[in-house]
């Protein structure tokens, strides 16, 4: 992140509290910056308006590339570059190409998806992202608001919401 951002956040003790708080925030038309949790909370995505991840579509494309790479390469080697007869079978012995074609499909799809996943998450070896509270990876559930880009009136609304929705701790942090 380039510019520093001032984040107002509240910590909740349970995912059920978190879910009802997010619903309450939606009802009050407050713009939630982000929600953090120690494990995936099911039912949160539609409340936050998150669209389904397109990672699996990317995976399909990578897999297709892997499949074509393997199959076309073996075809080229055994029909164009250096045709050899093995065991009296045709040069272009398609059934024998299936295992390697399958393996490379899986390999390309997996590597491609994992690399894409870390890239779009902004994560990777050596990356340090700001952590709002150390207990978010332990037992706290966090709703955060971008207080730096909000008017004073909005910030007080955020604060009022956090208090009323049962946040156990409310803090501000510049990240």
């Amino acid at each position: 992140m380039s510019a520093h951002r001032e984040i107002l956040f509240g910590l909740y003790d349970d995912e059920t509290d978190l879910l009802s708080a997010v619903k309450e925030a939606n009802a009050r038309h407050l713009h939630i910056d982000n929600v953090y949790s120690p494990f995936p909370v099911h039912g949160l995505d539609p409340l936050l308006g998150l669209q389904e991840s397109r990672l699996h579509q990317a995976g399909f494309v990578y897999g297709a590339i892997g499949m074509l790479t393997a199959f076309l390469f073996m075809t080229w080697v055994f029909t164009r570059d250096w045709p050899i007869i093995f065991g009296g079978k045709p040069y272009w012995s398609v059934p024998a190409f299936i295992p390697i074609t399958f393996e490379l499909t899986v390999l390309f799809a997996s590597i491609g998806m994992v690399v894409t996943y870390y890239a779009v998450n902004g994560q990777g070896p050596g990356v340090t992202n700001a952590v709002l509270d150390d207990r978010i990876t332990d037992d706290k559930f966090c709703i955060s608001f971008d207080a730096g880009h909000a008017s004073e009136e909005e910030v007080s609304k955020f604060q009022q919401f956090l208090t009323e929705s049962g946040a156990k701790e409310i803090r501000t942090k510049t990240i």
């Binding site: 982000n34 998150l50 389904e52 995976g59 998450n121 990356v127 992202n129 709002l132």
Partner: peptide, 25 residues
């Protein structure tokens, strides 16, 4: 930990990735 924060969108992608990797594994 690659800069993991536990953001909702990351968890969503995490689950999507796990499921597809499981499907092809």
């Amino acid at each position: 930990s690659f800069g993991w924060t536990g953001a909702a969108k990351h968890w969503q992608r995490f689950e999507s990735l796990s499921l597809v990797l499981a499907g092809i594994a």
